[in-house]
Design a binder for these strands. Structure first.
Lengths: 140, 140
DNA sequence: GTTCCTGCAAAAGCTTTGCAGAAGA
DNA sequence: TCTTCTGCAAAGCTTTTGCAGGAAC
């Protein structure tokens, strides 16, 4: 059940605690870019003693060790995403949903020659999503 | 002195007030991606009666009319930038500076065929900037 | 046993809201 | 004049901090 996450934490030399395993598992199984609040309220159902501070702490550690990434597209709050291959994000200004996008930029390599040491690349797109466009069409 | 900004506000059919002119001018002349706090404290020097609420209000209006854009790269707070040609941003994790980046992605056009209506495109890069790399080299 | 983590409460930081008086068109 | 904006204060959210008890190794 948690073997995968135990392994991931061990590989990163992070101390293993039930809370960290739950949070990592939740982020792996829910690719919904949740906020701390969302992670907290979901996991609290099975663990009423869980503290929001622990979610903040754990998320910070997972972030610093590169197991997850933070998404700042919505501006008002931080969101988190289990780390896998590079992908970008689209925020619908109407429904607020954040959708994964796969566009690879062939020019990205040239960024590596800009003199700065690039560690993270985030592509954020904003607009109106498919669903909301269709809803609007149906109305007319 | 303010003709340019009077024109910009008129074109966008935004009511003209001294505060809005000052804020727009500040953002045009200081490409430092300031926070509301920074804009507020800088402009307060010449206009002690200025309120932070007004900065928030004005910035919202300018944003909604597309005269400026918001930058969410730093996560904890919103930053603002006078709108000009498309460019991206690099955040140095060491010194915190945000640097303008010009990389054009030829694949961007294909995003327009993803079904979503793309209105904004933001490229955020994070890592260590040139300056900080050089500082580190000098030490060694 | 030592170190690090969790959870609670309080505080801090950024942003929004409500409203009365003031300014723009 | 009518509408909209400004500025103050208070409130709302998200995130951080301090610390005592508890868990991991």
């Amino acid at each position: 059940m948690f073997e995968k996450y135990v392994r991931l934490l061990k590989e990163s030399q992070i101390k293993i605690t039930p809370q960290r395993l739950e949070i990592l598992k939740y982020l792996d199984e829910h690719r919904t870019h949740p906020t701390v609040e969302k992670i907290y309220s979901e996991l609290k159902e099975n663990n009423p003693a869980l503290s929001k501070t622990t979610v903040y702490n754990s998320v910070d550690i997972l972030l610093n060790h590169g197991l997850i990434q933070s998404i700042t597209i919505s501006g008002s709050e931080l969101r988190y995403d289990f780390k896998r291959g590079m992908h970008h994000h689209f925020l619908c200004k109407k429904c607020g949903e954040i959708i994964d996008i796969n566009v690879e930029c062939p020019k990205l390599g040239s960024m590596l020659e800009c003199g700065h040491e690039v560690v993270e690349v985030h592509g954020y797109f904003k607009g109106i999503c498919k669903k909301c466009i269709n809803k609007k069409k149906e109305k007319n």
